[in-house]
Simulated assay, not measured.
Amino acid sequence: MWVQEIWRYPVKSMAGERLQTAEIGPAGIAGDRVIQVRNNQGRLYTARTRPKLLRHRAVLGPDGQVLVDGLPWQSDAVGVAVESAAGLGAHLVRSDAEDRFDILPLLVATDGMLKAVGTDSRRFRPNLIIGGVPGLTEREWEGAQLRIGSVLIGMEDLRGRCIMTTYDPDSGVQDLNVLRRIQRDFQGVLGLNSYVIEPGRVAEGDPVEVIRS
Score class of each variant (00 low, 15 high):
A77K: 13
R100Q: 10
L67W: 01
P72A: 01
S95K: 05
A77Q: 15
V66S: 07
V66E: 07
D111A: 00
Q74W: 11
V68P: 03
W73Y: 06
P72Q: 00
A90M: 02
V93E: 08
D69R: 03
S95T: 14
L104M: 12
G64D: 15
S84Y: 11
L92W: 06
V80L: 14
D69A: 03
V93A: 11
A109P: 00
G61H: 13
S84A: 13
S84T: 12
P62E: 15
G79A: 10
P62T: 14
A97V: 15
L88N: 08
L107P: 11
F101E: 11
G89S: 04
G87Q: 01
D111Q: 00
M113T: 03
V68N: 05
V82G: 10
V93W: 12
T110L: 04
D96F: 10
D111F: 02
H91T: 06
S95F: 03
V80M: 12
L67H: 01
S95M: 07
D69T: 07
R94H: 15
A85G: 11
V78T: 08
S95C: 07
V82H: 08
F101D: 15
E83A: 07
G87Y: 02
L104G: 12
I103C: 13
L92E: 04
V80N: 11
V78N: 06
D102I: 12
M113C: 05
E98D: 15
D102L: 14
R94K: 14
L107G: 07
E83M: 08
I103M: 14
L106G: 06
E98R: 07
L106S: 06
L88P: 09
L92T: 04
H91F: 05
D111P: 04
G112H: 00
E98F: 10
A81H: 10
M113N: 02
G112Y: 00
D63N: 15
G70P: 01
V80R: 12
M113V: 02
L104C: 14
V66D: 09
A86R: 00
W73L: 05
H91R: 08
G112N: 02
A97D: 13
D69V: 11
V93T: 09
D76N: 09
R94L: 14
A81N: 11
D76E: 13
A90K: 00
G61T: 09
V82E: 08
D111M: 04
D76Q: 12
V68R: 02
S95P: 13
E83T: 07
E98T: 10
L92V: 04
V108I: 12
E98A: 12
A97N: 05
D102G: 13
A85W: 03
P62K: 15
P62L: 12
G70N: 00
D69L: 11
